[in-house]
Simulated scan of single mutants.
Amino acid sequence: MTGLDVRQLKYEIVRPTLIALGLWSPAAENLLTGTALAESRAAYVRQVGGGPALGIWQMEPATHDDCWTNFLRFPAQSRLATKLQSMLASDLTRQQQLITNLRYACAMARIRFYRARDALPASTDAAGLSAYHKNHYNTAQGAADAAANVAFFAEAIAA
């Protein structure tokens, strides 16, 4: 199955979203583009096999809610919370927008990574970006394979 055109995903969705959040960097751009490829091939909006993950970044509702409850609701993050609120459509829940609203879903994936204490790898380090994805977006028990996913991050870098 093929998904979104990777160049369009990177330059028409990821980059403008990260710039709007004030969290753009070449490394973040390649990390978010590679994450969509690694998680869903930028094609699936529901987790294959019936799991809970939603959208092309395959964020689980519990992870989404944790970002709001334990990070975005605090005054120190009010700027980010306001930016995220401005990305929402008024007729759907936030969780539903992980599927329907690419900008919001990308922004929430960036927030998940932003909460990590480790610095982002170099923007051209596909293996480093893949390992960062595994360590900070997936879990040790999760299905992501950092070695196998290097190709997705290389594709994101090349786009």
Rank of each mutant, 00 (worst) to 15 (best):
R79P: 00
Y44W: 12
L102Q: 10
G51Y: 09
L80C: 13
L129G: 02
V150A: 05
P16T: 04
A143M: 12
Y114R: 15
R117Y: 10
R7E: 12
S90H: 09
G34V: 10
F71Q: 04
Y104D: 05
A20T: 03
Q95G: 14
F152W: 11
Y137A: 09
Q96C: 09
T33V: 05
A126F: 07
Y137S: 01
A43Q: 10
I13N: 13
I111A: 08
R73T: 13
Q8V: 02
I157R: 05
A38E: 09
P61I: 01
D125C: 02
T2E: 09
L54K: 10
A53E: 05
A119V: 00
Y11M: 14
N149F: 15
H136M: 04
D91I: 01
T139I: 09
V14D: 00
G22L: 07
S123Y: 01
G51W: 05
N30H: 07
G3K: 07
L4M: 14
A131F: 07
L88Q: 00
R117T: 10
G55M: 06
T2H: 02
P75E: 14
V45F: 07
A42S: 13
T124I: 01
I13A: 15
G51N: 06
L31S: 00
K83G: 11
L18R: 06
A140F: 01
T33G: 08
W68F: 14
R112T: 12
H133D: 02
F113T: 00
G3H: 00
D118L: 07
A127I: 04
D66A: 13
A122K: 11
N149C: 14
A131R: 14
H64T: 10
R41S: 09
Y132Q: 00
V150L: 01
A53N: 01
G34A: 11
D91G: 07
F71W: 12
A43C: 12
D91P: 06
R46E: 03
Q141F: 11
D65C: 12
F74I: 05
P52G: 15
R94N: 14
F74W: 12
A151Y: 04
D5A: 12
